[in-house]
Design a protein around this nucleic acid. Structure first.
Length: 190
DNA sequence: GCTATTTGACCTAA
DNA sequence: TTAGGTCAAATAGC
């Protein structure tokens, strides 16, 4: 039988993030757009560009009501094509964090992936790299792998960077918001 | 001509 | 019946 053409109402997104750019390190193909009740902005639907190879990852992008410059992006499904294949970058991401104590910096290459997307804010192209600054209390060695439900920490990303897969990786969700020239993250579990 | 995007229609859970 | 997710023909861009 044909699979349902409609996601079950209320189905949980694998993760949901707030971002000021729609770029996330993956290649997406738009397949639909809808005006949503109670929203001033249409909702955009994307699936992985490698869906033809069986990748079932999709995402739903909508501008934030409160902050029109920001986006709320919900991810559904996993990249069964393999994250490396879905990403345009030639090299896999370096480890998300180089832990060097209370402050740790990781360096990322910024990639302009959304080409001429009208949704893409003027981020990223001119800046060369992203740095993620981590401030976490307590044990820093496990903060990226399995944060406890009570842990609280934040990261900072120097602008220029679209949020990339490395930031979203893991078993927990992130929310980020623009703070002048940086993005701050916080664990959505709290 | 090929590929990606747009957009109205279609489908179905609520 | 409505709302929202997807399809697919038309269109645009290369």
């Amino acid at each position: 039988a044909m699979p349902s053409k409609r996601r079950v109402r209320g189905a949980e997104a694998h993760r949901e993030v707030h971002a000021d750019t729609t770029a996330d390190g993956f290649v997406w193909r738009k397949y639909g757009q809808k005006d949503i009740n109670g929203s001033n902005h249409p909702r955009l639907y994307y699936r992985c560009a490698l869906s033809g190879e069986g990748c079932r990852a999709t995402r739903r992008v909508q501008r934030s009501q409160e902050e029109p410059a920001a986006f709320v992006i919900a991810y559904y499904g996993e990249h069964t094509c393999g994250a490396a294949l879905c990403q345009q970058r030639a090299e896999p991401l370096p480890p998300t964090v180089v832990d060097s104590g209370s402050n740790a910096w990781g360096v990322f290459g910024a990639v302009d992936r959304n080409r001429g997307s009208p949704l893409l804010p003027s981020l990223g192209a001119e800046q060369g790299a992203v740095r993620r600054h981590v401030e976490a209390p307590g044990d820093t060695s496990r903060r990226w792998s399995s944060p406890s439900s009570s842990s609280s920490y934040s990261s900072e990303v120097e602008l220029g960077a679209s949020p990339v897969e490395g930031f979203l990786d893991g078993n927990f969700d992130w929310e980020w918001e623009t703070v002048v020239n940086s993005l701050s993250f916080r664990d959505l579990l709290h």
